[in-house]
């Protein structure tokens, strides 16, 4: 699986889960969406990171969601972790 398709898979997964958590339509979630503005709480951060860890077999500190506050920025971090596997 190439890096692009992997990134696409991660992006799709995150967009779907963020839509469910924040009760939004997936089409409204873009790379520049800001997590805090979407109302993401610390509980959501712990849950979402746990799911990304399980699905993509990487380690992820929930606080990092709030350090990479947009979807694109957070995707970049996940890319790095997957690449470093």
């Amino acid at each position: 699986m190439t890096e692009n398709t992997k990134r696409g898979e991660v992006a799709a997964f995150l967009t779907q889960r963020l839509a469910e958590i924040t009760k939004r339509d997936p089409s409204m979630i873009t790379g520049s969406s800001v997590f805090v503005d979407m109302g993401l709480q610390s509980i959501d951060a712990v849950l979402l990171c746990g799911e990304v860890e399980d699905k993509f077999d990487i380690e992820l500190d929930p606080a990092s969601i709030f350090e990479h506050d947009t979807l694109d920025s957070f995707l970049g971090l996940i890319d790095e972790r997957i690449a470093a596997q």
């Binding site: 712990v46 849950l47 990171c49 746990g50 380690e59 929930p62």
Partner: peptide, 9 residues
């Protein structure tokens, strides 16, 4: 530690 990852919890 705040916001412990699920695996750590």
């Amino acid at each position: 530690h705040p916001w412990l990852p699920m695996r750590e919890l």
